[in-house]
Amino acid sequence: MLRRRARPGREADPAGADPLDAAQERRVRAVLALGGVPQADLPDGVQQVRLRLLERAASGREAPRDVSAWAAVVASNLAVDWHRARRRQDRLGERLAALRPPEHTVGGEDTRLLSLAVARGLDELPDAQRQVVVLRFYADLPVRSIAEQLGVPEGTVKSRLHTAVRALRDRLHQDEVV
């Protein structure tokens, strides 16, 4: 549907066809790459552009006059969003390192290294595990409150905490921090 409107004279695409042709996909990949998105994340970015095109068509809005240009703008916005998310993650690590109570600063440089290593380890955890670790150990919420706030059973919170703490411990041993 989108291609037909963007390219008069072509036959209508069958239902479920790819809204981006090969040239448009290459252009989207190039815009994402030039925007600084890592090679590993490019397929996800292309899928996001496809999804937005399909959502636009499903909502009944008119297709863009130039699908290729529209897709490039969307790709550019996705690259900006990717950088914002990355900066947020970096700041989270810095904030978590700064949250250590002052009484634990006895070791000076050693404690700073430990804090940074823990922050990096937290960055590598899946979102659900990171969330329960932060709520339990940094926000000091009991397991029951975490379960209620997240809408999951207490056992799930405990399981996520156990898995996350084990992963953090392994990471700290691997990095020879502890």
Results as ranks from 00 to 15, higher is better:
59 S>W: 05
41 D>C: 10
122 L>F: 00
70 W>N: 08
66 D>V: 14
85 A>G: 13
131 Q>E: 15
130 R>L: 13
106 V>Q: 07
73 V>W: 03
80 V>G: 00
125 L>G: 10
40 A>P: 05
141 L>W: 04
46 V>K: 06
129 Q>C: 14
43 P>W: 08
46 V>S: 02
61 R>V: 01
99 L>S: 12
136 R>N: 08
45 G>Y: 13
63 A>Q: 05
101 P>E: 13
66 D>L: 02
116 L>K: 11
76 S>R: 15
45 G>W: 14
50 R>Q: 10
41 D>G: 02
133 V>Y: 00
52 R>L: 07
60 G>R: 04
83 H>M: 14
97 A>R: 09
61 R>A: 03
122 L>N: 00
88 R>F: 10
92 L>S: 01
72 A>W: 02
121 G>T: 08
134 V>G: 01
45 G>L: 09
118 V>W: 01
59 S>A: 13
144 R>N: 04
127 D>H: 14
130 R>A: 13
109 E>Q: 06
60 G>P: 09
118 V>M: 03
123 D>T: 11
131 Q>T: 11
94 E>T: 11
35 G>M: 11
116 L>N: 09
75 A>W: 07
132 V>G: 05
87 R>K: 08
55 E>V: 12
87 R>H: 06
46 V>E: 14
125 L>S: 09
88 R>V: 09
32 L>W: 06
104 H>S: 12
50 R>G: 04
34 L>G: 10
145 S>D: 13
132 V>S: 05
58 A>P: 09
82 W>L: 01
52 R>A: 03
66 D>P: 06
34 L>K: 14
85 A>L: 14
88 R>C: 01
52 R>Q: 11
84 R>V: 14
100 R>N: 06
125 L>P: 04
113 L>G: 00
103 E>H: 04
66 D>A: 14
67 V>C: 05
93 G>M: 06
139 A>C: 10
70 W>R: 07
141 L>N: 04
86 R>F: 12
86 R>S: 10
119 A>T: 03
60 G>I: 04
136 R>P: 00
142 P>Y: 07
70 W>Q: 05
84 R>M: 07
68 S>L: 03
49 V>G: 04
39 Q>K: 15
76 S>G: 15
32 L>E: 01
47 Q>Y: 10
47 Q>T: 12
79 A>W: 11
44 D>P: 05
39 Q>E: 15
140 D>G: 04
74 V>M: 07
102 P>Y: 00
121 G>P: 00
103 E>Y: 01
68 S>I: 06
41 D>A: 11
78 L>Q: 08
